[in-house]
Design a protein around this nucleic acid. Structure first.
Lengths: 334, 334
DNA sequence: TTGTATGCGTTATCAC
DNA sequence: GTGATAACGCATACAA
């Protein structure tokens, strides 16, 4: 920077102002400085800048598993909004590892990043003991899953209502015996979805029995396994409500492998509406989540948090949509 | 840090050493310091550390489109190796935008990151004029696509040979009239795959005609469109070789929508072996790329580049595999 | 093994 | 609108 200043014939301070663009420098000078910088192939040192200004302009987005098809569009939404706000996002994949999450968390504590968006549900372990303190420690927003016990603003949909609606739809087209494949047991989302499912069952007069909720997961594999159990159960369901689309696809694969037709022999519906849901054969009946908007909104809230750290931010519930496609139909006649 | 030093009754320098763990501090002291740090809820300031040490321990991974199913496993591979090397990776999605890529590139020039891995094919625009200089400017490794004109070490597979092999397989099971759906025209990969395809055609005695290479892309949509054209062509192919799996899936969707059966009426094969290739119905015959290994290897090379910036690194070609699944079969008998 | 002192490249404060 | 100068928080050369 000193060199640029010398070459442009101005002081160090002026160069700094010209580079940060925030304070005013006469247009004339600014041009001269920018040219000098270019000639010298100069780039500001972000570490020095951040050290001094106590702000990096970087937001870390924590993803628990980058292979999960639910995330990409969400990330794009975050990115778009971040760009509008002049921030850069950096995605950290924790690979289901709390240790890693903690590492990324430290990036915020260590001022390498200004804030964090959690697509994770898991609080970085170093803070696991006192999630409450997390939100006080640095600006942070969660998407989709509310972090239990933490005062972290969250954007998502009403999972309970969505599942209730889905059961209503299935009941309406004639299903009485519906099984739910529950996601990971420790996951809040799983629990909310089960809750909505059960409420729907009783409200719409469907059967309930011990195994009407099958433990499963958010993967194709776990969906397959649950489907195998469900089909061998004495109470063989006419419809399966998987807790996400991957799980639903697993269920369909298992059904097909047993020579069953979906939806003729058994209906299968999912949750999330990932890209593949409409591509798959049969296309999936599912719950659409406005992922791009969720990402955008989360970033927006984080921006407000950055601007006014003390002001508490409310949670945001966005609208979901029940999307009927080819994987569901009235139950087969006996 | 000063406070920690005071509380532990040592000097600032000793705390610094204890925190960076590289230099030696007696175990006794170290414990005392760590405790003091914990009590004070102290975290090192990464900006200051990086400013001083001229190294951030961060690697930026540039992805041109985070929604692309080819990347996740690759990213995991990079991440695994990075962890071994004590680095953290941060993923930047350029959203097909050169401006964004340049922004991320500046993170390296501005010393916020130590190096970069390109899953991109596009050179950040600020360097677009002189890609050669890029590699000299900072440590950088490319995966899959060699950057034309830049001396950037690249890890990938032999795309020409892989496509040649695929044509060989199709010819061997009886196909004579094969169409290739070419990826984005400006993409080096697309060009290499076309080259292998054409070589295969002549070598294995298949037909060649004007439209045996259909312009397409790496998306489902473009695959569909190309399939529509191919099926309406006078030279109706018995097999389609799409330049990636998404495109192949698009082709299958289009075929199905016209009442054609895959592979009974027409065979469709892809490239990459993304997760969905084996889940799809029919499961996809395709070229497996060792994505996890590619990621790991790239990170390894970047590590060597970081250690010895002047030493040129050789390209790495990994083994691919032709995976035969359900989407290909001998051509229908006339 | 530990302490002292200096500087990394910026930005912010205060003058002018 | 511009210049001088003091931090920012750490790592390291050198001394002890």
């Amino acid at each position: 920077m000193k060199d640029v200043a010398a070459r442009a014939g101005v002081s160090l301070a002026t160069v700094s102002r010209a580079m940060s663009a925030s304070t005013d420098v006469s247009d004339n000078l600014k041009r001269r400085i920018e040219q000098a910088a270019q000639e010298l192939d100069y780039t500001v040192n972000f570490n020095a800048r951040s050290l001094r200004s106590k702000s990096s302009g970087i937001i870390v987005v924590l993803v628990w598993d980058i292979t999960n098809a639910f995330f990409p569009v969400l990330l794009q939404g975050i990115e778009e909004q971040a760009r509008v706000m002049g921030k850069a996002i950096l995605i950290g994949d924790t690979a289901n590892d709390n240790e890693m999450a903690a590492t990324y968390g430290r990036m915020v504590e260590g001022q390498r990043a200004d804030g964090m968006i959690l697509l994770n549900g898991n609080v970085p372990r170093s803070d696991a003991k006192s999630p409450r303190s997390l939100a006080r420690r640095y600006p942070i927003v969660a998407i989709s899953e509310r972090i239990p016990g933490a005062a972290i603003p969250t954007v998502g949909i009403d999972n309970v209502a969505a599942c209730f609606d889905m059961v209503g739809y299935l009941a309406q087209i004639g299903h009485k015996r519906i099984v739910h494949f529950m996601g990971p047991a420790e996951n809040i989302l799983s629990q909310q979805r089960v809750e909505g499912f059960r409420k729907g069952l009783t409200h719409f007069g469907c059967e309930t029995w011990a195994d009407c909720v099958q433990p499963s997961g958010f993967t194709i594999r776990s969906g397959r396994a649950a489907m195998a159990r469900a089909l061998e159960d004495a109470m063989r369901p006419t419809a399966v409500f998987a807790s996400n689309d991957e799980s639903a696809i697993g269920a369909i694969i298992e059904a097909k492998s047993r020579g069953l037709k979906v939806p003729d022999d058994v209906s299968v519906v999912g949750f999330d509406d990932i890209e593949f849901a409409q591509i798959y054969d049969p296309s999936l009946t599912t719950i659409y989540q406005p992922r791009r908007d969720m990402g955008r909104k989360a970033m927006e809230i984080l921006g407000q948090l950055l601007a006014e750290p003390r002001k508490p931010q409310a949670d945001v519930l966005l609208d979901y949509k029940l999307v009927v496609r080819a994987s569901s139909a009235p139950p087969p006649k006996r």
